[in-house]
Design a protein around this nucleic acid. Structure first.
Lengths: 209, 209
DNA sequence: CAGCATTGAGAACAGCGTTCTCGAAACGAA
DNA sequence: TTCGTTTCGAGAACGCTGTTCTCAATGCTG
């Protein structure tokens, strides 16, 4: 253990970071074990010492991304007055690609988000428990606002986690279907803004008291 | 051309049928070119004469399934009195797995539906136009009910195709996420029924006038 | 019948995720 | 120090995928 940097085994972190970048640069097709190893300089074996397989890696990226987004959103909505405004902010932010580590709604973040959305259903089938755990930070945040909204009489009484999942699924899949369907490469902020507005109106009507 | 059955080139149909069955039996993982060829007895080359690649095949299955479902739903809703009841019927039927060629909400149909949902985002990225065309029968049917509903004052004024897509995306992804997350193998009709009810309530509130 | 386009059977290729082998390096004990 | 053991990096290998290519058999046309 004479490495100049690195603790016990932050190779997992290192690998996740590489996967993160690869996803940004080339989407799901660009995320291969070999590419990750090439980028990190690690050996094949090191990877399988840290992760049980590719699914584990994708799950880790999933968890990392959503934990980050949830943390960011949680801070941002603190300033907002009521639960409904907070929900609105979260939904809008997801559509606009906020919540990514790097400031703007980058094309990269969009690619990663799309890739993760694409993996969502597969992982739901292959590793339901792990996926649920990975997504929970954001879902829980949304559910919490739902509950608060119910207490405040803004949101209709219903199962908060259930509605949170509905909203998250709707937003996640719709935004990526819509944005990727347009061959226009770069963000197009205006289009995204009306998209965010429309999606939010749909959700708002669905959940309001 | 001395085949006992078969017209000019219904091999495409034959291949799609085989793919259809494979999807039912083993999900996306079971759908491989080799398996299709084995099942149909066709040669490798015959496949690539009919389809440009695997994407084309999946797209064809997509189109076939949704065209069938749309036709079925269109007949079923004819008897219903108002647009909102028709929309309700369609949404509920999708969740319950009606609209499959074979009567009941079979586990097979669920597998195929899940597989197609999983491919949705990938095809949206890789072949947006073709996917749009494949999904259009069902989306259009929903959109038509939306328009009728607007004319009748039951549905809020908005872009009907847009809301139809939102509803379809929500229903499609949610039902499969939910159903596949539960490791319980067979249908569980009761659970599906409350699922259908909840999803419909969400959609109904989102679109009602 | 001769020539030619079509097509079936399957080998071959490139890529993937995953596993295995093997030799070098690192470490602890005598 | 020296030996034995353990760890681990480098990469070959395996089985699978989608796709392309080769080649000979087949059937149609002149």
């Amino acid at each position: 253990m004479s490495e100049v940097e690195g603790d016990v085994c932050d190779r997992a972190t290192q690998i996740v970071a590489a996967a993160y970048d690869l996803l940004d640069e080339a989407g799901l097709e660009g995320l291969t074990i070999r590419a990750v190893l090439l980028r990190t300089g690690l050996a094949r074996r090191a990877f399988y010492d840290c992760f049980a397989g590719k699914d584990d890696l994708v799950l880790a990226v999933f968890a990392h991304t959503l934990r980050l987004a949830a943390t960011l959103f949680a801070e941002q909505v603190d300033a907002l007055p009521d639960p409904m405004a907070r929900l609105r902010h979260i939904v809008t932010a997801i559509v606009l690609g906020r919540g990514m580590a790097d400031q703007a709604p980058s094309e990269q973040g969009q690619r990663r988000g799309a890739a993760l959305s694409r993996e969502h259903l597969r992982l739901a089938e292959a590793r339901p428990a792990a996926l649920q755990k990975a997504v929970s930070p954001l879902i829980d945040l949304i559910a919490r606002q739902m509950s608060d909204g119910m207490a405040a009489g803004q949101v209709r009484a219903a199962a908060a986690p259930w509605m949170a999942m509905l909203v998250y699924n709707l937003v996640s899949t719709t935004v990526h279907t819509e944005l990727l369907a347009e061959e226009g490469a770069r963000p197009d902020l205006q289009r995204r803004t009306v998209l965010a507005g429309d999606i939010w109106e749909f959700c708002w009507r669905a959940i309001k008291a």
